[in-house]
Each structure stands twice: as structure tokens, then as C-alpha cells.
């Protein structure tokens, strides 16, 4: 990739604000997944898209300095979490991938429904972020 000198002040300044709002929205979509449209897949894609916006506004090196994460490991961690939460049902004598939920009185949040499906979703989320970022960064590094 040729280093071109462009003046992206407007793009970079807007990105600084917008990528945080996209991140926030992706977390919202992720958490809304149980009762509303959303979930781990679309949430992960939107998180990755906020990082892609960073990649568009800045160059690859800057983004790797901002996020010194090897995204292959992120995908691996996500898979591990998903497998562990699926296999966790064996501990209670249930079948593979059995999920349960319960109502808990959390401090501050009050009565909250906590489902183990969310843990599985976190795995999906991390896999999607990891895979998307790996694909885009690998293509971007090619000359």
C-alpha cells in the first residue's frame, strides 16, 4: 500500500466520536438479543465495523497501536467460551447445549433475568469480532 499524504481532519475527528457511539450501540444490540432483534452475531459485526471505521480513518499501524490485540486469539477465546458454556450442562446432568435461566436480585439492577445463553452469545460475539477483524487486517496488510 502506498503511503499517501492526505488531510483527513474531518474524517478523523468524526471517527473519534462516532466509533464510541457505534461501540455503545453494538453492546446495546448484543444485550437486547434475548427479547428483541439483535444478538451476538450482529453485535459482533457492529463492534468490528467500528474498528473498521478506525481503520478507514487511520492507517493500519495506528490502529494496531490503539488495539494491540491479535484477533485470531479473540476468535479462539470466543470458541472456547462457547464450548465451555455448552459443555457446562454436563455438570448438572443435562444434555449438551442445554441452557437454563433464573431470576436474581442483583444489587442496584433489581430483579434481573440471567440466562446462560448470554454466556454462549459472548462466545459468538468474540468469534465474529475476531474473524471479521482478522479477515480485514490480513487483506489490508497485502501489498
Amino acid at each position: 500500500m502506498k503511503k499517501q499524504q492526505t488531510n483527513d481532519v474531518i474524517l478523523q475527528t468524526v471517527t473519534k466520536i462516532a466509533c464510541f457511539i457505534i461501540l455503545l450501540f453494538s453492546f446495546h444490540i448484543f444485550l437486547a438479543g434475548h427479547n428483541n432483534p439483535g444478538g451476538g452475531f450482529i453485535g459482533g459485526l457492529m463492534t468490528a465495523s467500528s474498528f473498521v471505521l478506525l481503520l478507514l480513518a487511520y492507517d493500519l499501524k495506528t490502529v494496531q497501536n490503539i488495539l494491540p490485540v491479535n484477533f485470531i486469539y479473540v476468535a479462539g477465546t470466543g470458541l472456547l467460551i462457547s464450548i465451555c458454556t455448552s459443555a457446562g450442562s454436563f455438570l448438572f446432568g443435562a444434555q449438551f447445549l442445554t441452557h437454563s435461566f433464573g431470576y436474581f436480585d442483583l444489587p442496584l439492577l433489581g430483579k434481573t433475568e440471567l440466562a446462560t445463553a448470554v454466556l454462549f452469545d459472548i462466545g459468538v460475539y468474540l468469534v465474529v469480532v475476531g474473524v471479521t477483524m482478522t479477515i480485514i487486517q490480513t487483506i489490508g496488510e497485502r501489498e
Partner: peptide, 21 residues
Amino acid sequence: AVSFLSGYAIGLFSLFLLRRF
């Protein structure tokens, strides 16, 4: 106030994620 606090925590997390910014 609760939703403000949870939003603050999530904003804190995203600030932490991109802290080198």
C-alpha cells in the same frame, strides 16, 4: 439512575478498550 450507571459502566469499558486513542 440505574440505566445511567450501567451506561456509564459500558462507556467506561469502551473507553478502556480504545484508551490509547
